[in-house]
């Protein structure tokens, strides 16, 4: 019962703060709510016995990426959105319509999956669903990364390197306000 209550609280916080990300007028608040969502999801990971994922979620997402977001928001010193919207409002309402359609479709899909008799379901989904969550061992993840996913792993490292270089090149001049490019070169 305790687990279920904690699960419910996490779910609620995650959903509510996700909504607040969209509805908060100032990006700083939005970013903080996003952190809240991520932490809640990390809590859900812990409840599922996925400690590794939870740790990554907290350290990388909530820690590193969100700090970067905060940093940029502060740097640009963006205030509330002001001024009249330029684009037509149609995009928002049409977005709502198609978002609703999308949600309906996915809900229908999940409902189909959930209400399906256990015996007729896909063999992989049935047996462990009822059992307690198994703990995915860390060394198994590591082995996968070094064997099956080794190419993807290496490419990801290259991707990160490119991202670092790209970010530096793109933002270099602007980060050092008042210093001309010639000064940087010399």
């Amino acid at each position: 019962m305790l687990i279920q209550s904690i699960y419910g609280i996490f779910c609620f916080v995650a959903l509510f703060s996700a909504l607040l990300v969209v509805f908060s007028p100032h990006p700083v608040y939005g970013a903080l709510y996003l952190v809240t969502t991520m932490l809640s999801i990390a809590g859900l990971f812990v409840l599922m016995n996925a400690q590794l994922a939870a740790a990554f979620q907290v350290i990388v997402y909530a820690g590193a990426i969100m700090v970067l977001f905060m940093f940029v928001i502060m740097l640009l010193n963006l205030g509330r959105q002001d001024g009249p919207a330029v684009r037509t409002r149609g995009v928002r309402w049409w977005g709502l319509v198609f978002g609703g359609v999308f949600l309906a479709q996915v809900v229908a899909m999940v409902a189909q999956l959930v209400t399906r008799p256990v015996g007729a379901a896909a063999p992989s989904a049935a047996p462990s669903a009822a059992a307690a969550f198994a703990s995915v061992r860390i060394h198994e993840v590591a082995r996968l990364l070094m064997t099956d996913y080794v190419y993807a792993f290496e490419m990801t490292s290259v991707l990160l390197l490119i991202a670092i270089v790209g970010a530096v090149v793109l933002a270099r001049r602007q980060l050092v306000q008042g210093v001309s490019e010639e000064d940087l070169r010399s």
Partner: peptide
């Protein structure tokens, strides 16, 4: 407008899911 394009994207996703 990026967001108009994103809307087009969303419509396409709906069709594909359907």
């Amino acid at each position: 407008q990026v967001q108009s394009y994103a809307l087009g994207f969303l419509v396409g996703v709906n069709v594909v899911v359907w």
